[in-house]
Every structure is written in C-alpha cells, then in structure tokens.
Simulated scan of single mutants.
Amino acid sequence: MKDSGAGDGRVRVLLVDDQTLVRAGFRAMLESESDIAVVGEAGDGDEAVRAAVELLPTVVLMDVRMPGVDGLEATRRIAADPRLSEVKVIILTTFDVDDYVYGALKAGASGFLVKDTEPAELIHGVRVVARGDALLAPSVTRRLIAEFATQARQQIPEARLNSLTDREREVLSLVAQGMSNDELAAHLVVSPATAKTHISRILTKLNARDRAQLVVIGYEAGLVKPGWLG
C-alpha cells in the first residue's frame, strides 16, 4: 500500500511489518508530526524493496522477523542498490539486544528501535536517522563491544584504514563509541562543523554508507576496547 509522495521537505517514512495493526500503530504515531509523512507500507521484505525503489523514502522502519524475505535480507538489498543510497533503514526488534544486532549493522542498517518504544522515542529515532546519524542505544553499543572485542583485539586494523590521518582515526574511534557531532566537537575542542567535516572525509575514504557503518568498521579494526563506555 502506498500514499501520495511528500515533496515538501518532510521526512518520508516507509513502514515494513507483516502485521497490519502494528503498521497502523506506527502510522498513527508518525503522522501526528508535521515534519514526517508516511509514504507507504509493506508486509514483507520483497515488497519493502520494491516500495523503496518506487517511493524513495528517507527512512524505512523495517521489522526484522517476517515470513519469506526477512528484514535483514531486505536491508541488505536496499543498502546494495545504488538507486537507494540515500535511504536509511531502522530495524524494529522485539528486544533491544538480540542476535540480529551486528548482522543488521553489517547489512546496512542505520539503527534500531524496540517495537514497544514510546512514541516520543520513535519520532526522535526517525529524525536522528533522517539527518544521517546512527541510532544505537547504549545497551546495543555495549553488547557490540562485548561480543566482538576479543575478535577485534586479535585483528590487525584493516588496510583501508591506512588512508586515514591520525586525527581521522581518533574521530573514527569516537564515532564507534557512539558520540554525536556535538559530543565529538566538545571532546576534540573544535566546532561542530569541523567535526562533521572529519566524518564526511572518513565516510568518503572508507566508502561507508553512514555512521552506523563506521561503528562496525571501528569495532572490527580494534579501535574500540572493552570498558571504554564504562
């Protein structure tokens, strides 16, 4: 099912869930906001990819567990399609820490929301991802570090990190810890614009889709160590 497109600057959202009532609930929450428009719905992964190509949403709210093509595979297909390079995916999970977290980030997801999240958190999450930030709850970030720290310690940083300056490596490690642009700026004692410029250069050099992909690269290259988040 699709709606007429929103070409007025609003955040365009595609809802993907195999349960009609769940989609209706999310639609009601999101459409209460003047800066967000639900432009379509899909009931499975195949339909989601087709709808993304047709509607070019800003953000896809993607259920992870669906019959047929699941949310992970649909996310992977969206991330791999050059026509959808600007489309961001938020994975909807039943639990904030489950087996899908790392796989979804690897597949190209920009973040996670729990299905029973408060309306204000859902709306905030959509806006955060729409502006290009990663949406990673502290519990998710800590679990990523805990699960992959041992593996990361044994790895030699990827060769592609050689293209980064020392400052850019530092910025990458801070992004991997979940810092926002403002937090980066305060930590580095630079302006938010300078922090954003650093991140843009890192994204280009590493050919990364967004900040969430930088988080994955930071973990895999061993730039984040256990206990850094306290």
Results as ranks from 00 to 15, higher is better:
residue 60 V to D: 04
residue 136 L to C: 04
residue 155 Q to W: 00
residue 98 D to L: 09
residue 151 Q to H: 09
residue 68 G to N: 10
residue 61 L to P: 00
residue 49 V to I: 10
residue 88 K to W: 01
residue 150 T to F: 02
residue 125 G to S: 12
residue 76 R to Y: 06
residue 130 A to S: 10
residue 99 D to V: 10
residue 89 V to E: 01
residue 124 H to L: 11
residue 123 I to A: 04
residue 50 R to N: 09
residue 114 V to I: 15
residue 80 A to N: 13
residue 133 D to A: 15
residue 145 I to T: 01
residue 127 R to Q: 07
residue 65 R to Y: 03
residue 68 G to K: 13
residue 98 D to Y: 07
residue 85 S to L: 07
residue 87 V to P: 11
residue 104 A to S: 03
residue 129 V to I: 03
residue 81 D to H: 07
residue 119 P to I: 06
residue 107 A to K: 08
residue 154 Q to S: 07
residue 90 I to Y: 08
residue 152 A to Y: 05
residue 85 S to W: 08
residue 70 D to E: 05
residue 71 G to Y: 11
residue 125 G to V: 13
residue 51 A to V: 04
residue 61 L to V: 04
residue 126 V to M: 13
residue 164 L to Q: 00
residue 42 A to I: 09
residue 80 A to T: 12
residue 155 Q to R: 09
residue 98 D to T: 11
residue 60 V to E: 05
residue 95 F to P: 00
residue 128 V to F: 02
residue 110 S to E: 13
residue 111 G to R: 06
residue 145 I to S: 00
residue 113 L to P: 04
residue 135 L to C: 06
residue 46 D to Y: 10
residue 93 T to L: 03
residue 135 L to I: 08
residue 112 F to E: 01
residue 159 A to M: 04
residue 143 R to Q: 15
residue 79 A to K: 11
residue 119 P to Q: 07
residue 68 G to R: 15
residue 96 D to G: 15
residue 149 A to Y: 02
residue 126 V to C: 13
residue 142 R to G: 15
residue 145 I to G: 00
residue 114 V to R: 06
residue 71 G to W: 10
residue 102 Y to E: 13
residue 46 D to V: 14
residue 128 V to S: 02
residue 150 T to K: 02
residue 152 A to G: 04
residue 71 G to L: 09
residue 61 L to I: 03
residue 128 V to C: 04
residue 42 A to P: 14
residue 108 G to N: 12
residue 66 M to F: 12
residue 136 L to R: 05
residue 146 A to W: 05
residue 161 L to W: 05
residue 40 G to N: 14
residue 142 R to P: 07
residue 66 M to A: 10
residue 152 A to Q: 02
residue 148 F to I: 03
residue 99 D to Y: 02
residue 149 A to W: 02
residue 143 R to L: 12
residue 48 A to K: 11
residue 45 G to L: 12
residue 149 A to T: 06
